[in-house]
Amino acid sequence: MDNIDKKILKQLQSNSKQNIKEIASKVGLSVTPTYERVKKLEQAEIIKSYVALLDRDKIGKKFVAFCQITLLRHHKELIDDFKTHTIKFPEIMECHHISGNFDFLLKIVVNDITQYQKFINEKLSLLDCISTINSSFVMESVKDTTVFEL
Rank of each mutant, 00 (worst) to 15 (best):
L12S: 01
I113N: 10
I69R: 07
I108A: 00
A24E: 02
R73G: 07
Q115D: 13
E36W: 07
S14W: 04
I92V: 14
I4Y: 07
D81K: 08
L105M: 14
Q68L: 14
V138Q: 00
T86H: 04
E42T: 08
T132V: 06
I20F: 05
I23R: 03
I120T: 00
E140N: 13
S125M: 01
D112V: 01
N111R: 15
Q11N: 08
L29D: 04
F66V: 15
C129K: 07
I130N: 00
E22F: 01
L29G: 02
V110K: 04
T32R: 08
R73Y: 10
I59S: 11
V51S: 06
I108R: 02
T84S: 14
Y116W: 06
M139L: 14
S49F: 09
S125H: 04
K143M: 03
L72K: 14
L106R: 02
Q68P: 02
D103R: 03
A24W: 01
L72N: 14
H97L: 14
I8Y: 00
N15H: 07
V27Q: 00
V64G: 04
K40F: 07
T86E: 08
H75Q: 09
K88N: 05
D81H: 12
D5M: 05
V147Q: 12
R73F: 13
N134D: 14
C129I: 05
K123Q: 06
L9M: 02
D2I: 00
I98T: 13
I108L: 06
Q117A: 11
P33F: 03
L9K: 05
K76G: 05
F137Q: 03
R56G: 14
G60S: 03
V142S: 08
K17F: 08
L78S: 09
S135Y: 03
S131R: 15
H75V: 12
L9F: 03
K6L: 04
L150P: 12
M1T: 08
D128R: 09
Q13V: 06
I120H: 00
S25Q: 15
V31D: 15
D57V: 13
H97Q: 09
K10L: 13
S136M: 11
D128W: 09
D128I: 02
K88G: 05
L105T: 13
V38F: 05
E77T: 12
Y50V: 05
K7D: 08
I98N: 01
L29F: 09
E42K: 10
H96Q: 11
N121Q: 14
H75G: 04
A65E: 01
Q11D: 07
V51C: 08
L124K: 00
L127A: 11
H75K: 13
G100T: 06
N101C: 08
M139D: 09
M93E: 15
K143T: 07
I108P: 01
E36S: 12
Q11V: 10
I133S: 00
Y50Q: 11
S25A: 10
S125E: 01
F66R: 07
G28H: 03
E94M: 12
I87W: 04
M1R: 08
